[in-house]
């Protein structure tokens, strides 16, 4: 079982994820239309790139934007979840060893305490993200089953990983579950709202170009995100 999960399944999951992401990324940019979107993307590349980069990096910084600052609760929950979600798959010691063996790429590894902290932060944050959906009327009204499903499959690798980490019950069962959930997540990325892991950059870049080119960037005004 373990061999299957770390063998064929891993390659399928990774392949589907990467090819899916690439395809969708290309489709996204091919689907942009200067006239329909009313943004002259290609006529002003420099202004566009400037706007796109600002639009992305400002939002990647915790409390880097007005939006994050005015809503600190979700900002904390958001970054609490996403920092772990981005760093752990690549830099957790177990993962780095695995990736080295499979792909021959070696990343630096996170200190075990930090890794634990990030994992716990992610789980706790996810709990609050769920709570938010249940409690706040402005979020509840839009929340669909898919939203819970996405949260579930996003948090499953963390939960199973932690269960394995603390060896609660059967270690190898939890480990296999962890790998399975992780691969499920990879496959889900291109086909669900999880596509935001890469389309976030596309969408933010697009709006950034809009501001960079049409909505003030070329007048010398930097958008105060």
């Amino acid at each position: 079982m373990h061999d299957l999960l770390t063998g064929v399944f891993f390659w399928i999951a990774l392949g589907v994820c990467l090819i899916g992401m690439l395809a969708r990324f290309i489709m996204y940019f091919r689907g942009l239309s200067w006239q329909l979107d009313r943004v002259a993307y290609t006529s002003h590349p420099a202004a566009g790139v400037k706007g796109a980069v600002r639009s992305i990096y400002k939002w990647l910084i915790p409390f880097g934007t007005y939006g994050w600052r005015t809503q600190p609760f979700i900002a904390v929950a958001f970054f609490g979840f996403h920092i772990g979600a981005v760093l752990l798959p690549f830099f957790l010691l177990g993962h780095t060893l695995f990736l080295k063996e499979k792909l021959g790429i070696s990343f630096i590894s996170l200190n075990a305490t930090v890794a634990d902290g990030l994992a716990w932060a992610a789980v706790i944050s996810a709990f609050f993200l769920v709570l938010r959906r249940l409690v706040l009327p402005e979020v509840r009204i839009m929340t669909t089953l898919q939203d819970y499903f996405i949260l579930l499959i996003s948090i499953a690798p963390f939960a199973t990983g932690l269960l394995a980490r603390y060896e609660i019950g059967n270690y190898s069962f939890w480990l296999n579950m962890h790998i399975f959930c992780g691969e499920l997540l990879l496959i889900a990325i291109p086909f669900t709202k999880l596509s935001h892991v890469f389309l976030f950059f596309a969408s933010r870049a697009q709006l950034g170009m809009d501001f960079g080119i049409k909505r003030g960037g070329m007048k010398g005004t930097k958008m105060a995100w």
């Binding site: 689907g31 402005e138 709202k193 596509s195 976030f200």
Partner: peptide, 20 residues
């Protein structure tokens, strides 16, 4: 096209726009 379709698709239903 892709811009609006993507917007509609990736909206996380997070409600951060509410207060804005």
């Amino acid at each position: 096209k892709s811009r609006i379709r993507t917007w509609l698709e990736i909206c996380a239903h997070c409600g951060m726009c509410a207060e804005s």
